[in-house]
Simulated assay, not measured.
Amino acid sequence: MYGDVERIKKDIELFAKNIKELESIEIHGNQERIVEMAESYCQDTSYYLEKKDQMTAFGCITYAHGLLDAVRILHDLI
């Protein structure tokens, strides 16, 4: 499952869609740091895909989604 490059790429696209939702809300303090961390993990995903390390890439994008979802939940976006 985690080795599926196409699945990981779809998760990157979903992350981009979900983070765009945050443009319509005001984020404060630690929430900003959480979003920055999520963005960093998403960037790491692409890095590890380039290195053909799908397992680490999958872990990074999964973690990025989790962090982003935490902020989205706080703002009733999901």
Rank of each mutant, 00 (worst) to 15 (best):
I34C: 05
L77E: 00
I12Q: 04
K52L: 12
H75V: 01
T45I: 07
H75E: 01
G66D: 06
E13G: 12
T56F: 04
A57P: 01
H65S: 05
R33Q: 11
V5N: 14
Y63K: 05
Y41D: 05
S24Q: 15
R33S: 12
I34D: 04
K10C: 10
R72A: 06
M1T: 09
F58I: 02
Y47H: 12
Y2E: 13
I25R: 00
E21G: 00
Y47W: 12
L77C: 04
D53M: 08
G59D: 14
Q31W: 03
E6H: 15
F15E: 02
D11S: 15
S46G: 14
Y2P: 11
F15M: 10
D44Q: 10
H28F: 13
K10S: 15
L14I: 14
Y63W: 09
K20M: 10
Y48M: 09
I27F: 02
K10Y: 15
R33H: 12
K9C: 13
E21A: 06
L14R: 14
A64D: 01
R7F: 15
I25S: 02
T45H: 03
I8A: 03
E23H: 05
M55W: 13
G66N: 10
I8W: 00
L74A: 03
E39T: 10
K51H: 07
I19Q: 00
Y41K: 06
L68F: 03
K9G: 13
L74W: 03
N30H: 08
M37W: 06
A57R: 00
T62N: 04
H65C: 01
E50S: 11
I73K: 12
Q31I: 03
N30F: 09
E50D: 13
E32T: 11
F58T: 00
Y63R: 07
Y63E: 06
I73T: 06
Q54V: 14
D4R: 09
I25A: 00
G29V: 08
I27E: 03
S40Q: 08
I34W: 09
L68V: 01
H75C: 00
E36R: 11
Q43C: 07
S46D: 14
C60Y: 03
S24D: 15
Q31D: 09
Y47G: 06
I19N: 02
Q54F: 15
I12K: 12
L22P: 01
E50C: 09
N18H: 05
S40M: 11
T62M: 02
I34N: 03
V5I: 15
R72M: 12
E32H: 11
I34M: 13
G29K: 08
F58Q: 04
D69C: 07
E6M: 15
D11F: 09
F15Y: 06
V35I: 10
A38H: 01
T56M: 10
Y47D: 12
K20T: 11
R72I: 04
V71S: 02
H65L: 05
I61D: 01
I27A: 03
R33C: 07
M37E: 11
H65Q: 10
E21F: 04
I19H: 01
A38V: 04
I78A: 09
I8F: 07
E23W: 02
Y48H: 08
K51V: 05
G3H: 14
A70M: 07
V5M: 15
L49S: 06
R72G: 03
F15Q: 02
E26A: 13
H65M: 07
V71E: 01
A38Q: 00
A16M: 10
R7G: 15
